[in-house]
């Protein structure tokens, strides 16, 4: 059994430091790792990244994150990544990590992802250079996420993105903005590997549960969706216990 805690869109800055900490102090009794699905900060500054590291770092379990669109706002994503890495937090971008947990290997492949839309209402790689760049970015990130997922050898494989891989977890958002919230190419990438669970954020008004066309469970863990400090998911279960007793 492996238990994963997950949340996204925590948007940490000075005013948030301390809000999550009481719940995070209890996390090692409830889960084996913490995965965070992007939008760690408000504007993506190194100072905000330090606030995030203060709040979410130094736990007794591994912390694995992807960046979100907010973390790119000031074009300092490389510096943000360095601040987080220096604090012992693993930052994935079309890359992987494998955690050894209770004799099991938990593989995580992560990428920010990008928009583009979903079947029947998606953008095409056609026309103006700006549009081709937009969809080209979508395709490139999804292709590299797929490669990352297929490269991992593990017992349980989790895909971690900021943008949504399916439209089901966007229900509640205006239909008009779906193309800015995710893309079907991420879902295809997730389905190209034996993924056990896909986690994403970004859609604050979306829904919690969905599945990829290939049947992989998808969970939108954006903080305003889950309405608690983090959710806990159990993989490789030997028995089911819905009560969250110490793991």
């Amino acid at each position: 059994m492996i238990r994963i805690a997950a949340v996204g869109d925590v948007h940490v800055d000075k005013d948030v430091v301390g809000r999550y900490r009481p719940a995070l102090e209890q996390l090692p009794d409830r889960a084996d790792a913490l995965l965070i699905a992007g939008d760690l900060t408000r504007h993506g500054t190194p100072e905000e990244a330090k606030c995030f590291a203060t709040e979410f770092g130094g736990l007794a379990v591994p912390v694995v994150v992807v960046l979100g669109n907010h973390d790119h706002q000031t074009d300092q994503q490389q510096r943000v990544t360095e601040v987080l890495t220096d604090a012992g937090i693993t930052v994935l971008e079309c890359s992987t990590t494998v955690l050894e947990i209770r004799g099991h290997r938990l593989g995580i492949a992560g990428a920010k992802g990008f928009g583009g839309g979903f079947a029947g209402a998606c953008a095409s790689n056609f026309g103006e250079r700006e549009m081709k760049n937009f969809v080209g970015t979508t395709e490139d990130i999804a292709a590299r996420l797929g490669e990352a997922l297929r490269s991992v050898t593990c017992d349980a494989l989790v895909a971690l993105t900021h943008y949504a891989p399916v439209p089901e977890t966007l229900v509640g958002e205006p239909l008009e903005i779906y193309p800015f919230l995710g893309c079907y190419q991420l879902g295809n990438a997730i389905d190209s590997a034996p993924t056990a669970l896909a986690l994403h954020g970004h859609a604050h008004h979306g829904s919690e549960r969905g599945r990829t066309p290939g049947g992989v469970p998808v969970r939108n863990v954006a903080h305003p969706v889950i309405k608690q400090a983090y959710n806990v998911y159990q993989l490789l279960s030997e028995s089911v216990d819905a009560e969250l007793v110490p793991a």
Partner: peptide, 12 residues
């Protein structure tokens, strides 16, 4: 948004 610890786990 509330930030309390969860009381339940979801089996996947």
């Amino acid at each position: 948004t509330r930030a309390q610890a969860p009381s339940e786990v979801e089996e996947i």
